[in-house]
Design a protein around this nucleic acid. Structure first.
Lengths: 208, 208
DNA sequence: CATATACGGAACTATTCAGTTCCGGATATG
DNA sequence: CATATCCGGAACTGAATAGTTCCGTATATG
């Protein structure tokens, strides 16, 4: 979705290309979204932050809603290669390795973006779909791989409810940021792994 | 906060009382909040829903923000008596008994109200405080009592991180409703108790 | 029955902001 | 150097809505 559309056989004369500013604009939109939420955000704010004109935004997106939808959808772009995940040999090792990953690093930002659009999700199915695909599903699929490996390794029971296990981490992190207003730091994440996720997975406390 | 202020020594002549309509209005505000979120909600909507005039609302609250703040704060009113919680003799029994409680019944409504104000929480410390006091803390304190009993009973280790255990249930429920858009039904709650909370608390699976 | 009081409802004002239009300037192409 | 194309910016329009004012009515009190 979005980005410099590479159709148009011959852009003959003129300036550089089409819509070169898209990334900056979408990024500005995400920043404002995280800071003030969907309703608090104005098109002027986004334009100013991206050092663009409001007209430029409307040349590319037909409405505020579409801009935000596109911005959220583009978060999915930097998706993780599921085949290149850390493989340490233990479930705990894999989970701990994940929290040092850059995609985890900006977890807090993503959660704030989520906070900015939750109220919209109930009203707009498109937004619900986009948010799910960009913010919820990628995280779950990473975890799915990790737990699947642990099952192959006989580290956890083969009949584990992987879907449930996958949601524990995201749920605890989201609650921490959105409801408690506390940071998702390394200590919290490790405590959650050792104190909640691994016990729920059936890994014995001492069994490293 | 709010409700019929009972000062004024002698309301001599006139109608019945002061601000009799407060409860209906606050309730209407909460309904609209849950349905459309803070920004989607208009004062006219609330007035209409409560069959009141807009002027009546502004006679009592000086702004939309104060009305919502008061409405959220009043949720705390129907707080639970911590000494009258179900006491079944086991942690699992207590937790399961809690999900049949009326205060748990409207958990989903409360979560939707929360969704309606999350984006505000970041912008307004007052709202953050009110939401915490009305929606987060009451639930946590119920759980605290249950886990404290389990420790007294030697059912779970005395050095358990009760604060962490208290947040698991609310976190899983919030994620379920707000992010996944799925219902918090009895099955989900029981699965969460058996599959996440009890293992995290260190209760052995079979040990009923 | 008389009256002070609060309420419901409608009409009004002011502001904010989504979306539009227009123009001067930058820039790559030929 | 000429020109087609896109961009930034500012000015504008229109709709929605927060907040205000006013009035007719219902009602409890005396």
């Amino acid at each position: 979705m979005s980005q410099t559309d590479l159709d148009e056989p011959k852009p003959r004369l003129g300036r550089k290309r089409d819509h070169t500013r898209d990334p900056e604009i979408l990024d500005a939109a995400l920043e404002i979204l995280a800071e003030t939420g969907y309703d608090g955000m104005t098109i002027d704010m986004v334009a100013t932050r991206a050092k663009a004109g409001k007209a430029t935004l409307y040349r590319r997106w037909s409405s505020k809603a579409e801009l935000v939808l596109d911005a959220v959808a583009c978060l999915k772009a930097g998706e993780i290669d599921l085949d290149a995940l850390p493989d340490t040999g233990t479930l705990r090792g894999d989970l701990v390795a994940m929290i040092k990953t850059p995609s985890m690093r900006d977890a807090e930002r993503k959660l704030k973006i989520m906070a900015g659009i939750v109220s919209m999700i109930a009203r707009s199915p498109e937004m619900a779909t986009a948010a799910y695909a960009a913010l919820v599903e990628p995280r779950a699929s990473v975890n799915r791989v990790l737990f699947a490996r642990a099952i192959e390794r006989d580290e956890i029971p083969a009949d584990s409810d992987v879907e449930r296990l996958c949601t524990i981490g995201p749920a605890m992190a989201a609650y921490r940021v959105l409801m408690l207003g506390r940071p998702v730091d390394r200590e919290f994440l490790e405590d959650t792994i050792d104190g909640v996720i691994l016990p729920a997975a059936g890994v014995r406390p001492g069994a490293e």
